[in-house]
């Protein structure tokens, strides 16, 4: 059963993301849908234009991320939306680490300045690759299997 995030839940999520990634000048113009307890989707902004009667809906919008014990994990697309405005908890990968990341490997050797434990955004040059869990010494790879490069 999917439900639209309440105003309070939405505010909490936005505040968390703004604080965690120090988002400057980022405006959350979209609403969110939650399915089950964890997964959150961006709803099409013009969703309310549609008469849903007799439509057999399977999915709405784009997967944004999911709640877990570290609060909230962003999808690749969500990282691409908010990443350019993020000022902290962004790890900049070199080419060697990027090759490991897109193949699903955990990262051990990286610049941990500006990182605190929890989810961090993965960046190489101007591209964002989702988020990983920074434990204090490694970054656990959370890239979905269907987004990895297979050798």
């Amino acid at each position: 059963m999917a439900v639209i995030l309440s105003r309070k839940e939405k505010k909490e999520l936005i505040n968390y993301l703004k604080e965690r990634y120090e988002l400057k000048n980022f405006d959350f113009t979209f609403d969110f849908l939650k399915s089950g307890k964890e997964r959150v989707w961006v709803i099409p902004p013009e969703f309310n234009k549609i008469n849903l009667e007799k439509l057999k809906i399977e999915f709405v919008g784009s997967y944004f991320g999911s709640y877990d014990d570290e609060k909230f994990r962003l999808s690749v697309e969500a990282s691409q939306i908010i990443g350019p405005s993020a000022k902290k908890n962004v790890v900049l990968l070199n080419e060697e680490n990027l090759n490991k990341w897109v193949r699903g490997e955990n990262l051990k050797d990286f610049d941990s300045n500006n990182l605190t434990k929890g989810y961090v955004l993965i960046k190489n040059k101007n591209d964002f690759y989702g988020s990983g869990k920074y434990t204090g010494n490694i970054i656990l790879n959370m890239l979905a299997k269907n987004r990895r490069i297979k050798d």
Binding site: F30, V42, I43, P44, P45, E46, F47, I50, N51, L52, E53, K54, L55, K56, I57, E58, F59, V60, G61, S62, Y63, S75, V76, E77, Q80, I81, N146, R147
Partner: peptide, 26 residues
Amino acid sequence: SNIQRMGIINTIITRMDGRSFKKIPQ
């Protein structure tokens, strides 16, 4: 998966027989 990868947010995915769209109010 393709809709997600391309960053599309304006879609509603439905699973219906195409012949039944004539009956919906939208």
